[in-house]
Design a protein around this nucleic acid. Sequence first.
DNA 1: TATAGAATTGACGTAAACGTAAAAGGCGCA
DNA 2: TGCGCCTTTTACGTTTACGTCAATTCTATA
Lengths: 153, 153
Amino acid sequence: MKLISAGETAANTNNVSVEAGEDLVRIGEMAKKYGVTLRTLRFYEDKGLLNPQRDGSTRLYTRRDKARLKLILLGRKVGFSLRDVKQMMDLYDPTGSNTKQLRLALDKSEKQLARLQKQRALIDDAINELSGSMSAVRQMLAERSVPQASAAS
Amino acid sequence: MKLISAGETAANTNNVSVEAGEDLVRIGEMAKKYGVTLRTLRFYEDKGLLNPQRDGSTRLYTRRDKARLKLILLGRKVGFSLRDVKQMMDLYDPTGSNTKQLRLALDKSEKQLARLQKQRALIDDAINELSGSMSAVRQMLAERSVPQASAAS
DNA sequence: TATAGAATTGACGTAAACGTAAAAGGCGCA
DNA sequence: TGCGCCTTTTACGTTTACGTCAATTCTATA
């Protein structure tokens, strides 16, 4: 219902990867490929973690975006917040040695490792506490189901 | 600025525990005693987990409330939600054997234990993954700081 | 060309456990 | 009588990572 010049139409329609073997994918394929939802990809973009190209309004993800997404997912897996991930990725400079980025990543990793170990300890505590009260409860239930032979000791 | 009968005033003022050795405490003391905030106590009450008496509008916590609060805190410590805690406490019947309550508690505990163990496994994974990438990063930084004698393998 | 299937932006909703004012009432004490 | 402290209720704010519509537009295909 909108008139578009033939040139534009020809350039944008159909064949998605026309410029090079750039291997561009749209959001649906991207989501499927990495097991995330469309919402997630848009959210990451909104937070400045991804920057897909656009064909008109359609997002086109390059292999650069794929690499970044992999990093994001790894980061999330080990418990980094998206802020942390962004902060680390923002330091990436394709022309430099990225020493600063690596140092930051190492620094954050050490802290996160400490957090994880603390969490582990907390969970262990909880497990122990819970196991303890569970056997107490089992005790009570057992005594209750055998009301005979009680009274002493 | 509001007229209150002398009787009421005499009955409500000053000495808080006048009825018996009931050992009633107000919210401030209660909070201090258990290391929680006022907001938390009111929140728990709002959620039906606590039911302090009232002296006018002032909350007065009995030892029953203290026992319940201890349970709540224990529950939170081992990872139960307030909903879970409430569900279990709601089954408490001071006249019965509470078998149902114990069974429910045991059931929930088993599930929670499973969750905790799963979490522990996840954290272990994360720790391993993180340690791995940390040593990789350390590698890169080490190579970078010794740029001499490079080129071959 | 009609229609189903993607994709877009925008915006409110969710979960959990409180935090944080705001405005006001009641208490003892000097 | 004024001050300061404790307490009350009400209600919106916080955090994180999205979920879930809704209204539209685009695109491919039959």
